[in-house]
Amino acid sequence: MPNNSRILISGASIAGPALAYWLRRNGFQPTVIERAPAPRTGGNGVDIRGESVRIAGLMGILPRIRERATDIRALTFVDAANHRVAGMPNSTFNAADDIEIMRGDLAEVLYEATADDVDYRFGDSIHSLVQRQGAVEVAFDSGRTAEFDLVVGADGLHSRVRNLAITPEADALHHLGLYFALGQVDPEHGRPGEVALYNTPGKVAGVYRSAAHDIATGFFMLREPRVLDIDYRDQDAQKALLRGYFETESWQVPELLAQATSDPGFYLDAVSQVRIPRWSAGRVTLVGDAGYCATLLSGAGAALALEGAHRLATELTAADGDHRIAFDRYEAGLRPTVAKRQRSVHAGSAMLVPASRPGIWLRNQLTRLLLLQPLAAKVFQPTPAAAA
């Protein structure tokens, strides 16, 4: 058994279970703590591409991921009368091996691949961390306490582990001048295999309907340069905020807004990247969005989670559990990839949420060029998953 084998992972979405898989395979003893009472369902479409496809293959979960693929075929922009004004096929940006899957489906696949030999503890969360000479003392919201050799935050954009042990949220999050929200809506509002988007200056509303699921997601994004004072635990306040921006819009927006804000899984957040000088402090480190969120505009969140989990476990194994060596190598190896993915988002926001009517017109013309000129496709990096 390697040194520092008792590892607590906070978060059971994508990065956490992926890390637990590799740690358990290499002789460590991971424990996964998750605030939700059960594996989380729902969410947006996410992309498995490039290196993350290879990693999923090594894990033996690639067939299950392909079985659960969304089969999104097109991104379509519509006017208020629901007439198509521009669009492109999914293949414009995706390589042949790329896979899009609903976030909840990917989380379920990862949980199923690890549930038999990883200790999962749902319905609890880390309350405090105290680092000692050879361990980390952890107190949980439930009142329990325990000691671990290492702690990993895989708990997303608003990571409690990051706040407790590495840097305050105010110093970690970089607002990109956008907010987004989503919630489940009636499938009749969308066409199977299509993401349909309706723009007005500085705003977009849309429907994401997987051809492989009898559900649809209502999607909203708006330009707002201010950092709004939002309590992310107060759904009623979030819903009121969204209504204030969208309730006067046409197309299907009133119906989508009513249904999305009635969904118990409704979600609203700022579009923010996590940019911090170090992903670790002592015996605590971060993986996935907690450490280096690139935002949904990058289409790379799930891929970075899988790549980061694999690299962190690989470095811990190579260093025989020596966290000082492993954390440095993990960060040095992954940071160039993270930086590239984070830089890719600005063209995506220009395409999805043009700030003016001339900008909307120009976007529509450019999407026609994308179908004719492969070089023009490099201007815009996002995939239909970025709009879900």
Score class of each variant (00 low, 15 high):
22 W>R: 04
369 L>E: 05
277 P>D: 13
290 A>E: 07
1 M>T: 13
329 R>A: 09
9 I>D: 08
59 M>Q: 04
3 N>W: 08
275 R>V: 14
340 K>V: 04
123 G>R: 13
312 L>N: 04
310 H>R: 12
229 D>I: 02
282 G>M: 04
83 H>C: 11
255 E>V: 03
377 A>K: 15
294 A>T: 15
33 I>D: 02
356 S>K: 02
288 G>N: 11
343 R>H: 09
66 R>C: 00
388 A>Y: 14
290 A>Q: 05
221 M>G: 06
278 R>V: 04
367 T>E: 10
86 A>H: 12
375 L>G: 06
167 T>Q: 05
242 L>N: 15
326 A>K: 12
28 F>N: 03
207 V>K: 08
116 D>P: 02
296 L>K: 04
386 A>G: 14
140 F>H: 10
220 F>G: 08
268 L>H: 11
164 L>G: 10
61 I>R: 02
197 L>Y: 03
371 L>F: 02
19 L>A: 12
123 G>N: 13
186 D>F: 03
203 K>E: 01
71 D>W: 06
31 T>N: 02
166 I>R: 15
352 L>A: 08
83 H>M: 08
162 R>V: 05
337 T>I: 10
301 G>F: 08
51 E>D: 09
103 R>S: 03
365 Q>I: 09
337 T>H: 13
143 G>A: 07
171 D>C: 14
157 L>H: 13
28 F>C: 01
5 S>W: 12
180 F>Y: 15
15 A>S: 13
66 R>Y: 02
150 L>G: 07
270 A>F: 09
372 L>S: 11
80 A>L: 05
41 T>I: 13
168 P>R: 07
92 T>K: 02
317 T>R: 14
181 A>F: 12
211 A>H: 02
130 V>M: 08
85 V>T: 15
303 A>W: 02
256 L>I: 11
188 E>F: 14
159 S>M: 05
359 G>W: 14
147 E>P: 00
52 S>I: 01
379 V>L: 15
315 E>Q: 15
335 R>S: 04
15 A>W: 01
98 D>S: 04
256 L>T: 09
76 T>Q: 03
202 G>I: 07
241 L>Q: 01
238 Q>D: 00
202 G>V: 05
386 A>E: 04
372 L>F: 05
249 E>K: 03
327 F>N: 10
101 I>M: 01
13 S>A: 06
226 R>A: 12
149 D>G: 10
295 T>K: 12
203 K>R: 14
250 S>C: 01
110 L>Y: 03
10 S>F: 03
121 R>L: 08
30 P>K: 03
323 H>K: 09
16 G>R: 10
35 R>V: 09
67 E>D: 12
276 I>E: 07
239 K>E: 00
99 I>N: 00
302 A>L: 05
231 D>G: 03
197 L>S: 11
304 L>S: 07
337 T>K: 12
33 I>M: 14
301 G>A: 04
258 A>T: 02
338 V>G: 07
60 G>F: 00
62 L>Q: 09
332 A>D: 06
298 S>N: 02
361 W>Q: 04
